[in-house]
């Protein structure tokens, strides 16, 4: 469903991505991990065209992201994205956050959008908070609203960019639980995260990045069992020590 082929990206003379190639098939959950600054977030933002890339090709459902004649808004409407800092719209209520793009982009009626929004809030356990503003919610609640907002668009795939990195430890699980449920329902997911417990539970494959390169791209069992690259071994030994 998502095919990333030989992607390279530069910021000026600095090369942030080097010949990255990987793919996510329908219903697959791929976890992308690696040390900070390794280009994981940049790579995932290339998938829906939030970041431009200079070389290579990314296709989502056969549509090229980088091509000039691609209708990017239309493509993005079908790819859900969840950000590290939630990025809920603070001037809109929780329900308005969920309905804005449904109405403006998908052309749904306000009634249909609200019904969809209410069902999704129920699903992430926040039905009682529809009228509140994002600033009145905890970080974990905000991120669950952000997931609901992305799901409201009926995405064919979901991108998660370090969804739990900005959360207090006690709030991480409430967000991961929602993500685990999604994965079990067969949602196609690409997840940048350091949560190796999550990777072990639901990932099909793990992509390990370092210095802008994809160093290892292996089934979960292989990655955790016997990572081939030294850099992946070092990374795992560091984050799994505790």
């Amino acid at each position: 469903m998502i095919a990333i082929t030989n992607i390279s990206k530069w910021y000026g003379h600095f090369r942030v991505l080097t010949d990255c190639t990987t793919a996510v098939s329908k219903g697959e959950v791929v976890v992308v991990c690696g040390p900070s600054g390794s280009g994981k977030s940049t790579l995932i933002k290339c998938v829906n065209g939030l970041e431009a890339f200079q070389q290579g090709e990314i296709t989502v459902n056969g549509v090229s992201v980088g091509a000039k004649d691609t209708d990017l808004p239309k493509l993005r409407a079908h790819i859900g994205m969840v950000f590290q800092n939630f990025e809920l719209f603070p001037h809109l209520s929780v329900m308005e956050n969920l309905t804005l793009a449904q109405i403006k982009v998908l052309g749904r009626t306000p009634e249909a959008a609200i019904a969809k929004g209410a069902a999704l809030l129920e699903r992430v356990g926040l039905a009682a908070h529809a009228a509140k503003f994002p600033g009145q919610l905890s970080g974990g609640q905000q991120q669950r609203v952000a997931i609901a907002r992305a799901l409201a668009m009926d995405p064919i795939a979901m991108l998660f960019d370090e969804p739990t990195s900005a959360l207090d430890p006690e709030m991480i699980n409430e967000v991961l639980d929602v993500m685990v449920d999604l994965a079990k329902e067969g949602m196609t997911m690409m997840v940048v995260t350091h949560e190796m417990g999550f990777a072990r539970r639901v990932a099909h494959r793990v992509v390990f990045m370092d210095k802008g390169e994809i160093v290892e791209d292996a089934p979960k069992e292989d990655f955790f069992g016997k990572p081939r690259s030294e850099r992946a071994q070092l990374f795992l030994s560091k984050i799994l020590q505790h």
Binding site: L50, R76, A101
Partner: peptide, 10 residues
Amino acid sequence: QAGAGYALGL
């Protein structure tokens, strides 16, 4: 904020 808007297809 703008990125989140674009990601929703706006």
